[in-house]
Amino acid sequence: MKRTNRRILMTGIKFMALSLPFMFLAPYLITLGFLNKDNSTFYIFFPIGLIIAVAAIFFAFKGIQTIMKSMFD
Protein backbone atom coordinates (compact mmCIF):
# COMPACT_ATOMS: atom_id res chain seq x y z
CA MET A 1 0.00 0.00 0.00
CA LYS A 2 1.33 3.43 -0.93
CA ARG A 3 1.66 6.20 1.58
CA THR A 4 1.91 9.95 1.31
CA ASN A 5 5.41 11.27 0.76
CA ARG A 6 5.68 13.76 3.61
CA ARG A 7 8.66 15.64 2.20
CA ILE A 8 6.85 16.43 -1.04
CA LEU A 9 3.68 17.24 0.93
CA MET A 10 5.54 19.81 3.03
CA THR A 11 6.93 21.40 -0.14
CA GLY A 12 3.37 21.76 -1.46
CA ILE A 13 2.18 23.28 1.79
CA LYS A 14 5.05 25.78 1.63
CA PHE A 15 3.96 26.81 -1.86
CA MET A 16 0.41 27.28 -0.61
CA ALA A 17 1.63 29.29 2.38
CA LEU A 18 3.65 31.49 0.03
CA SER A 19 0.62 32.16 -2.16
CA LEU A 20 -1.63 33.18 0.75
CA PRO A 21 -0.12 36.65 1.43
CA PHE A 22 -0.01 37.32 -2.31
CA MET A 23 -3.76 36.57 -2.51
CA PHE A 24 -4.47 39.36 -0.05
CA LEU A 25 -1.83 41.80 -1.24
CA ALA A 26 -2.67 41.74 -4.96
CA PRO A 27 -6.29 43.00 -4.74
CA TYR A 28 -5.20 45.69 -2.31
CA LEU A 29 -2.51 47.00 -4.65
CA ILE A 30 -4.80 46.86 -7.69
CA THR A 31 -7.50 48.78 -5.80
CA LEU A 32 -4.93 51.29 -4.58
CA GLY A 33 -3.83 51.80 -8.17
CA PHE A 34 -7.39 52.40 -9.37
CA LEU A 35 -8.06 54.86 -6.56
CA ASN A 36 -5.10 56.99 -7.74
CA LYS A 37 -5.87 57.17 -11.45
CA ASP A 38 -5.09 60.91 -11.64
CA ASN A 39 -1.67 60.54 -10.02
CA SER A 40 1.39 58.81 -11.34
CA THR A 41 1.08 56.21 -8.56
CA PHE A 42 -1.41 54.33 -10.76
CA TYR A 43 1.50 53.31 -12.98
CA ILE A 44 3.39 52.02 -9.94
CA PHE A 45 0.75 50.13 -7.93
CA PHE A 46 -1.36 48.65 -10.72
CA PRO A 47 1.41 46.71 -12.56
CA ILE A 48 2.91 45.52 -9.28
CA GLY A 49 -0.54 44.32 -8.21
CA LEU A 50 -1.00 42.44 -11.47
CA ILE A 51 2.40 40.77 -11.17
CA ILE A 52 1.67 39.72 -7.59
CA ALA A 53 -1.75 38.37 -8.65
CA VAL A 54 -0.12 36.22 -11.32
CA ALA A 55 2.43 35.02 -8.76
CA ALA A 56 -0.37 34.11 -6.33
CA ILE A 57 -2.12 32.05 -8.99
CA PHE A 58 1.13 30.35 -9.99
CA PHE A 59 2.16 29.42 -6.44
CA ALA A 60 -1.34 28.19 -5.57
CA PHE A 61 -1.42 26.01 -8.69
CA LYS A 62 2.08 24.71 -8.02
CA GLY A 63 1.17 23.97 -4.39
CA ILE A 64 -1.98 22.03 -5.28
CA GLN A 65 -0.08 20.16 -7.98
CA THR A 66 2.70 19.22 -5.55
CA ILE A 67 0.24 18.12 -2.86
CA MET A 68 -1.59 15.90 -5.35
CA LYS A 69 1.75 14.49 -6.49
CA SER A 70 2.68 13.58 -2.92
CA MET A 71 -0.56 11.69 -2.42
CA PHE A 72 -1.04 9.89 -5.70
CA ASP A 73 2.41 9.41 -7.17
Rank of each mutant, 00 (worst) to 15 (best):
F59E: 00
N5S: 12
A60Q: 04
M23Y: 08
A17I: 06
A17F: 10
K62P: 00
F72M: 11
K14M: 15
M71N: 14
I57H: 04
K69T: 13
L9T: 13
T66D: 03
V54G: 10
V54Q: 03
I64G: 06
L29S: 06
G12S: 07
L29D: 05
T66A: 01
K2P: 15
D73H: 12
T4L: 12
F24P: 02
A53L: 08
F46W: 10
M71K: 15
A56Q: 00
S70W: 04
L25N: 05
T31L: 11
Q65T: 09
D73K: 15
A60D: 02
F42E: 07
G12A: 05
L50R: 01
G63A: 01
S70Y: 02
M10G: 10
I64P: 00
F42V: 07
F34T: 03
S40H: 09
T4R: 12
T4H: 05
S40K: 12
L32W: 08
S70K: 04
N39K: 14
V54F: 13
M1L: 10
P21H: 08
P27E: 04
L29N: 09
I64S: 03
R7M: 13
A17H: 07
I67M: 12
P21T: 10
T31Q: 09
T11G: 08
M1P: 08
K2W: 08
M23N: 03
T4D: 06
I48H: 07
T41L: 15
I57R: 04
L9V: 06
M10F: 13
F59M: 01
A53V: 00
L35G: 09
